[in-house]
Amino acid sequence: MYIARASGLHQLHPLTKVLLTFCLLIAGLALPGNWTSYLIILLVIFPLSVWGKVFPNLLRITWLVSLPFAISVILIQSLFWGTGTPLFEFWIFAPKLEGARYAVISLGKIILVMSDFLLFSLTTRPDALMIALKQAGMPSSIAYIIVTTLQIVPSFQRKGATILDAQRSRGLETEGNLFVRAKALVPIVLPLVLGSLMEVEERAIAIEARAFNSRQTETSLIEIPDTQLQKNFRTVILIVMFLLIIFGILWRL
């Protein structure tokens, strides 16, 4: 998912970005106010993504991934919100103002989580992250799992695209109304899941064969530049995160 760009954000130490990502997440969820998540998206995440030269990519993927959530949240709210100011009525749908408001607020949280993690993965090299995590004392197997999990979306995309091609070549309709698309799901998702299970075993063998579990002290090919400034900054973020959590708890009491 990483996109190589020459930007200040790209050059930050991966740990700095990890902490920043979590800090933004906690801020969005812990701070009071219904619109906090939107404020953080607009005032922090978007500007950061402009700095990282990935704003259009971030916007596009966030939109694509959020859309199904948005549709389902709005649908559910307009179907099931009990009493309130009715907006309009259509067939079985009777959305209420309060329901719509609630839908938009919860959507903000979903978009925050997505855009926050996207910003991180678009600007952080997976291998740099893995090295940084190991240097910070994390066992390599856990670092590897985290890094490959972050890659799972593009890897599923690649595999999914091939499977989609294979099934379309067998006459499977994938374009059209919701019913057509739903019917196409099984022939695409099943090989994807089964294939991934088989892949896991072979990949485990492949990395083990390359001494993944060796007890030697590991080295790394690439250097990850770090600065005192960034180290200080990370301490500050940690403190801020801690305060945010305390504040979030106290405020809710």
Binding site: T162, I163, A166, Q167, S169, R170, P191, G195
Partner: peptide, 12 residues
């Protein structure tokens, strides 16, 4: 008709 290289990418 198109027979892909890897059968596992289509069997379900």
């Amino acid at each position: 008709g198109y027979v892909f290289q890897n059968p596992d990418e289509q069997l379900f």
